[in-house]
Amino acid sequence: MRPCLSLAIVVAAILSCLPALAHEFWISPEDYRVAPGAPLVAHLRNGQSFKGAPLAYFSTKTARFELIQGANTEPVKSRMGDIPALSTTAPPSSGLLVILHVTRPARVTYAEMATFQSFVAHKDLAVSAADHAARGLPESDFTESYRRFAKALVAVGDGAGADQPTGMETEFVALTNPYADHDGTVRLRLLYQGKSRGNAQVELFDKAPDGTVTTTLYRTDAQGIVTLPVTPGHSYLADAVVLRPAPPGGDIVYESLWAAMTFAVP
């Protein structure tokens, strides 16, 4: 561990353990367009409204961390405590590059029902107080496990190519390449367990060049597709959450799965 980063690592470790609630997790490339073979740097971030502190890389918190370009997949090789979490070189050939990160399960305990209900309402999750009570669950001090499934789209050179499913339990798949073929909109498909997830809320964070962030809610159609309006020069974070009952027999009563995708529009 490098001594000059020790304080940053401690702060990042604390932030990475904060409750899920409505805090998004995303991959934040320093540049969304890079030349082949050029430096490729990206942060893992946790926060709200597309603003958050960078997190250090910890293998104990990471289930997958990969670079995908076409048919080629390479594991990201980071050291414990690295900030930024990704610092490498871009592939030598042009094309659309996907940075993928999956966290290991973490947990949050709700001290009171109101906090949980606020989270459920914010993310439009189909869990009511009556559903909670019907399962015989307590109204305080109950625990949720959560995992994050994040992708970032980066253009290497011309950025040509297509996104594809990666086998994550939930994920966005870009049907539009924002660097090559957008027409003022970007279409994403939301998947859950490999199937299209229809009628799901998608929260879109739109960051302008001056740093101003606008948040808008959308819904996927019956095929799990959402069409998002985009503006040149802006960057975007799309977020969607699955909440389900945890398997019986343990102290965890809910599981949440968070899908995120970041990209920019040239």
Rank of each mutant, 00 (worst) to 15 (best):
F116Q: 00
L86I: 13
A71E: 14
I99Q: 00
A111N: 11
Y110W: 08
P54R: 04
M113P: 04
L100P: 06
A53S: 10
K77I: 11
S94A: 15
S87P: 02
A53M: 08
P54W: 06
A111P: 05
S87W: 04
M113Y: 10
S93D: 12
I99N: 03
F65A: 15
R107E: 14
L96R: 09
S93C: 13
L96F: 01
F119G: 00
T109N: 06
V76K: 08
R64I: 03
R64F: 04
H101T: 00
A114Q: 05
F116K: 00
Q69I: 07
M80E: 15
D82E: 00
V120I: 09
E112S: 03
T88Q: 14
A114T: 13
K77E: 14
Q117D: 12
M80N: 08
A63Y: 02
E66C: 10
M113N: 04
A85R: 07
S93V: 13
T89R: 13
Q69R: 06
S87D: 10
V102N: 11
G52A: 09
K61Y: 08
G70A: 00
A121H: 08
S59A: 15
A114F: 03
H101K: 13
I83Y: 02
G81Y: 09
A106F: 12
R79L: 08
S94F: 08
L67M: 15
A53R: 05
G95D: 06
P84H: 04
S87M: 10
F119M: 07
V120S: 07
G95N: 06
L55T: 01
E66L: 13
D82K: 01
P105H: 08
P84Q: 06
A106Y: 05
S59Q: 04
A53P: 00
E112V: 03
R107L: 11
A121K: 15
A56M: 12
T103L: 10
M113F: 11
S59R: 10
G52R: 08
R104L: 15
T88H: 12
G70F: 01
D82T: 00
S118H: 09
L55G: 02
T62N: 04
R104I: 07
E66N: 12
G81F: 07
S78K: 07
I99L: 09
G81R: 05
I68D: 01
F58Q: 10
S59V: 04
L100N: 12
P92G: 13
D82A: 11
Y110Q: 01
R107M: 13
G70H: 01
I68W: 04
L86Q: 01
P91E: 03
G70P: 00
Q69F: 05
R64Y: 07
A56S: 14
P91H: 03
F58K: 11
V98W: 04
R64K: 09
T60L: 12
T62Y: 02
T103A: 10
G70D: 00
Y110R: 01
E74W: 11
S118W: 03
R79N: 04
Q69H: 09
P84T: 09
N72I: 13
L100I: 12
L97A: 10
T89V: 14
D82S: 05
E112L: 02
P84G: 03
A114E: 05
L67A: 15
A106I: 06
